[in-house]
Structure formats: C-alpha cells, structure tokens
Design a protein around this nucleic acid. Structure first.
Length: 330
DNA sequence: ATAGGGTTAG
C-alpha cells in the first residue's frame, strides 16, 4: 500500500493534511515516512514545518531543523522561510531572528514573517523598525505585510501610526483595502476606544457594512470599553444576521454583566437557553514529549490549576534546554 | 504531481 520510494506521494499526503487543517495527522504521516526509511526532501520539510507552526510545536520544529541541516537543505530559501515562520509562531523570536540573519537573500515572505514575529509578540517598535529597513532595501510590501504592520500597531495602541500605514498602503502602494484590511483598521480604532470612528468607517463603506466578521470585531471592542449603546445596536444586527451563533449572546451577556445590568444579562442568558444554544467548548493543546496533547476547557478529569502548573514548569524547563541547544546550533 | 508569510473576539 505505502508508496515505497516515491517521496512525492508522501509529500502530497503531508501537504494535503496541512492545507485542510489536520496538522497532527500531517506530522503522523511524516513519522510514517521516516519509519518507512524514505528520505525527506525540501518539500517534505516545508510542509512539516508549516504543521509545527500552526500547532506551536517547538520541540518537533527543532527536530526538523536538525534534520534539515543534516540533509544540507539549509540553503533552500523556502525551507528556511518555513523554519523562520515556525520559530516565529512558536514565540521563539531569538531563534527566528537567528534564521533571518543567516538568510542569503531575504524575500518578501521572510520579511513579513519576521515582522509578524515581532508584531504578534508585543514588540511593535521592533516590527516597525524592520518594516522601515525592508522599505529601505527596496523590497515592496504587499497586503499581507501591511496587515502584519497595522496589527502590530493595533496591539501596541499606536493608532495614528497604524492609520498612517493604512493610508500608505492605499495611496502609495495602490492596494485596495478589502474586508481583511478594514478588519485590521476597525480593530485598531476599536481597541483604542475610538468606537464611533470605527463605526463610521463601517457605515461609509457600503459593501462591508453587512459583514459579520467586521461587526463582530467592533462588537468585541464595544465590550472591551463597556460601550453599551453602540454594543446593543451591533448585537441586534449580528443576531439578525446569524441568530444561531452563540458568541454574540455570550459577549452581550458579559457586556451587561460588566456594566451591572443584571436583568438584561439574565434575559440574554434565557434567550440563549430558549434557542438551545450552547457555548462551544474551549480547546487548547500542548506538546509533551513529542506528542500533541489536547484538553478541553471544561475537562473535569483533572484540575485546571494542576494542568496550568504542569504546563508552566514544563515550558520553563524546555526553554532553558532549548536556549542552549539553539545557541550551539547557530 | 507535492513547498513558506494574515488581523480579530468571548
């Protein structure tokens, strides 16, 4: 059954699983490939690394790094780009920077990954500095680069800067903002409490006025800032559009509760119950000894506190160990 | 034949 020497067939399986979001399964196929004695190539590693990125499976990612060096594939631009992104998504900024520094040529994807690495881990100024350096090296940013830059600003509360980059994107780079770009802008303004400005943008741009994701982004910002009036208005729109989505009711209830409107909060809860809506269970996972362990938010089999404690001590131990290994590798 | 970058909410 198994394609003995055909690495392409294996790669198709691995990348197929990755592109359908089955990351654990894709790593399973990678393990099967190794067990079958097949030699992985650049494409195998690229796909397996993408799976690790999504799972934040740093341990597995580092193993792949070692194999890549052994296979002398560490000059392949795409493999290195995937490796950089893996480290970035795992929050290993120093390792990401190490890979970035050793690239012989830095293409647009690698620039963007490195900007994301900083921007999504609270280092907005580093992200902006890197973006500036990228422009100076005459690399032309695309919409994904701008999304990374604007969201970096959003998380750091740099509203004016974020707005500036949005305008730069539209006016100097001719990128027409679509839903994703507006979503970033609305998040930027909303997080900073400039809710009516955000709402204006939504209203003025007729073709996005009805978009559930954008309304949802603004709704979360209303909740964050306890803005009841606008929040209620948006909740009404959201419930009209998607009456079966429990998240709207949950956020609305929390918004009432945090502004001490207990009667209203109770009404929302009852309404939810009447409709038979249930909260989707929260789910997370952690990598323990090479395997990915899932757990649910309402899992009663062990105490949450115990679990959190275990995770923290494991992560702490892992970080110390990894620091030494990666420094040696570089 | 198969390959890397994307914001957002409780």
């Amino acid at each position: 059954m198994t394609p003995k020497n055909n690495v392409v067939a294996w790669n198709v399986m691995i990348s197929g699983y990755v592109s359908t979001g089955c990351y654990v399964e894709s790593l399973g196929i990678y393990d099967d490939l190794r067990e079958a004695g097949i030699k992985p190539d650049a494409i195998t590693f690229t796909s397996a690394l993408a799976a690790c990125s999504q799972l934040a499976a740093l341990e597995r990612g580092k193993e792949l790094h070692n194999c890549i060096v052994e296979s002398k594939l560490d000059s392949n631009e795409i493999v290195m780009g995937a490796l950089l992104d893996m480290y970035a998504k795992c929050g290993a900024i120093n390792e990401a920077q190490g890979v970035f520094n050793h690239l012989s040529t830095i293409d647009l994807v690698s620039w963007t990954s490195m900007i994301v690495a900083y921007g999504s881990h609270g280092q907005a100024f580093e992200a902006l500095k890197l973006f500036d350096k990228m422009l100076k090296s005459n690399m032309k940013p695309d919409r994904i680069t701008f999304l990374a830059v604007i969201s970096a600003c959003s998380h750091a509360g740099l509203v004016d800067e974020g707005h500036h980059y949005f305008n730069l994107m539209v006016n100097n780079y001719g990128i027409q903002p679509a839903i994703a770009e507006y979503s970033c802008l609305i998040d930027l303004l909303g997080r900073a409490g400039r809710l009516y400005e955000a709402y204006d943008i939504l209203q003025r741009t007729h073709y996005i006025r009805e978009d559930v994701d954008l309304l949802g982004t603004l709704f979360s910002a209303c909740h964050l800032h306890g803005e009841l009036k606008l929040g209620e208005e948006i909740a009404k729109l959201l419930i009209e559009k998607d009456p079966d989505d429990p998240s709207t009711y949950i956020v609305l209830e929390k918004m009432y509760a945090s502004t001490k409107k207990w009667d209203e909060a109770r009404k929302v809860r009852l309404q939810m119950k009447d409709l038979g809506l249930r909260k989707n269970p929260g789910c997370s996972w952690i990598e323990v000894d090479r395997s990915i362990r899932y757990f649910l938010a309402e899992d009663k089999t062990f105490s949450q506190a115990e679990l959190v404690y275990d995770c923290l001590s494991l992560l702490h131990f892992q970080m110390e160990k990894d620091e030494v290994a990666v420094n040696a590798a570089l």
